[in-house]
Amino acid sequence: MIVYTVTGTVGQAGYLDIANSGDITGKNIYVNMTNRCPCNCVFCLRQTKKMMEGNTLWLKGGDPSVDQVMEIFDAYDLNVINELIFCGYGEPLERLYDVCSVIDKLKAKYPNLKVRLNTNGLANLIHGKDITPELEGRFDTVSISLNAPDAEEFLALTRSKFGIKSYDALKEFAVLAKAHVKNVVMTVVEKVMPEEKIEICRKLCEELGVTLRVRPFES
């Protein structure tokens, strides 16, 4: 699925192709543009859940082109939705410039469109430079997966190809993003870590000047 909504139990009736989603008024609409990701998280749904045929976010045909994504959106009025979210199985910013192109085209038509990014925060390592200026004027919210209270545990959980420097990189990404996006949050997943570690993450976010959100665990 490239464009979808979320409802019900994730992995069963949870992901619905926008074509099967009925009235999209007030809904969050998700955009899945790549399978690629520098992480291989132990709790990722790639590892923990086998999705039903026809209900999977895995892009069997490879990454869709910008034109393919826009063709899907041409059939809908995005004025009525709540929020557009770049998410999916892969890391959206693997395709930074294509994502930006889609947003620019959509915002030309829907200037008040609310857009969120769900990211692992490693885009600056992916691209070898600070890409956060590209987020300005495009994203209203950036949500970064923090996942752990320290660099060692982060690496053990995410198995990032960038190694131990990944944790400091995502913290730096959060700080840099604040200069360009009004709402920057970091997330952890409940049940993946004990409450005392979540509190460490909460204090870290306070130090960085961002908000911590505890996401429900999807089993």
Rank of each mutant, 00 (worst) to 15 (best):
I2K: 03
Y4T: 03
Y4L: 06
G8W: 12
G11V: 14
G14A: 12
G14M: 13
G14H: 13
Y15N: 06
D17P: 03
D17G: 06
I24Q: 10
T25R: 12
V31L: 00
N32G: 00
M33S: 01
N40V: 04
N40K: 13
C41F: 13
C41H: 05
F43N: 04
F43A: 08
F43L: 11
L45P: 03
T48M: 14
K49Y: 15
K50Q: 15
M51F: 15
M52I: 07
N55L: 05
T56E: 14
T56R: 13
W58T: 14
G61P: 02
D63I: 00
V69F: 04
I72Q: 04
F73R: 03
F73E: 01
V80N: 09
L84K: 11
I85Q: 05
E91K: 01
P92K: 03
P92T: 00
P92D: 02
R95T: 01
L96C: 05
K107V: 09
K107P: 01
K109T: 10
P111Q: 12
K114R: 15
N120H: 02
L122Q: 04
A123S: 07
D130I: 10
P133M: 13
E136V: 10
E136G: 13
F139R: 08
D140R: 08
D140C: 09
T141F: 12
V142T: 04
I144E: 11
I144Y: 05
P149R: 03
E152Y: 04
E153W: 09
T158W: 12
S160G: 04
K161W: 05
F162L: 01
I164R: 10
I164G: 05
S166D: 13
Y167I: 10
A169F: 13
K171R: 14
K171D: 09
E172Q: 15
F173L: 06
V175M: 12
V175F: 07
V181I: 04
V181Q: 06
T187I: 07
V188M: 13
K191D: 14
M193N: 11
P194N: 06
E196R: 11
E196I: 10
E196W: 09
I198G: 06
E199H: 06
I200R: 08
K203E: 06
K203Y: 02
C205N: 03
E206S: 09
E206M: 06
E207I: 06
R215G: 09
R215N: 14
F217K: 11
F217G: 05
S219V: 13
